[in-house]
């Protein structure tokens, strides 16, 4: 087998570094940022809102709509001309199908929940990043969901099954296959599956097993993003009233001297992002 060492030195089942944050777009009802390697996605959820045009309304339950879009400067080559292309239309469709099984909108008949995913930069695996970001954003919006969805591309590069192919691996000069997979977290059921390239049945099964393991890691990143939003501020002890009052006092004095608060908030935000 020719492909023994990965181009960027990762282990075969190792993903690129991941980063996630919930609640990044204040206007949206729920939102998220999800980054894996150089692929970065923003997702925003608006709704449930009235579905227009009306003939698309479903009186039994609310619906979801997905809009996947790469920003014009997000491609690795020339500028991408804006506009609805067949590629983004198709990805929007599989994105919706990937999320639909866990979303429960029976309490919201005739409504629609819009999910918008935009990419400032990409390096392969964008539809998987879209699923991961959208899943966090839906949960952040408080849309009733039975489970979280995690997603990763697996595949075979010159005979070796690997996880999270980057652009250079997808373009590797040998037989390559790229298999984006999305799964529910608890039962590990597949909600998105596509492939291009060539692969044997054996390698496909190995790939899917690998996707299952990796999705578990991604789930932890997604879960932390949601929980971090509600984490107590550093040094904040809610249960002991004494410390509590002291802390509130600090806070108030900070807010009095406005410019300082902003810069210190800034710092703590940056610190969090670094962590």
């Amino acid at each position: 087998m020719a492909y023994e060492k990965r181009l960027d030195g990762r282990k075969i089942n190792e993903t690129r570094p991941m980063e996630a944050k919930a609640g990044v777009i204040p206007n949206a009802d729920g939102s998220a940022f999800f980054k894996i390697g150089a692929t970065a996605a923003y997702a925003a959820v608006y709704g449930p809102k009235e579905m227009v045009p009306r003939f698309l309304q479903d009186p039994k339950e609310g619906q979801i709509r997905c809009h996947y879009n790469m920003l014009p400067f997000s491609g690795s080559g020339e500028r991408i001309r804006p506009g609805n292309k067949r590629r983004s239309q198709e990805i929007s469709m599989v994105l919706k199908a990937a999320l639909k099984p866990v979303v429960d909108l029976t309490d919201f008949p005739n409504s629609v929940v819009d999910i918008h995913v935009e990419f400032p930069q990409t390096d392969a695996g964008s539809r998987c990043a879209a699923v991961c970001a959208a899943s966090i954003a839906l949960a952040d919006a408080g849309i009733p969901m039975k489970d979280m969805i995690s997603s990763i591309a697996v595949g075979q590069v010159d005979g070796t099954v690997v996880a999270d192919l980057n652009y250079n691996e997808e373009a590797y000069d040998a037989i390559v296959s790229d298999i984006p997979v999305a799964m529910t977290n608890n039962s590990k059921q597949i909600t998105l599956l596509q492939m291009d390239g060539e692969i044997s049945k054996e390698d496909l099964m190995t790939s899917l097993e690998m996707a299952k393991e990796v999705c578990e890691e991604i789930y932890i990143v997604q879960k932390n993003a949601l929980k971090d939003k509600y984490k107590l501020p550093e040094g904040f002890v809610a249960k002991k009233p004494k410390t509590n009052v002291e802390k509130s006092n600090d806070k108030v004095t900070e807010e009095k001297s406005k410019p300082e608060t902003e810069s210190s908030n800034e710092k703590s935000k940056e610190d969090k992002e670094k962590q």
Binding site: L71, F73, G75, S76, E78, P120, Q121, T122, D123
Partner: peptide
């Protein structure tokens, strides 16, 4: 954005705008 030749994110209060140069 690493894929752009130049890029910036500007925040004014709650307003956030991205610009990318190709």
């Amino acid at each position: 954005s690493k894929s752009a030749e130049g890029s910036a994110k500007v925040t004014i209060g709650d307003t956030v705008v991205l610009a990318g140069v190709k």
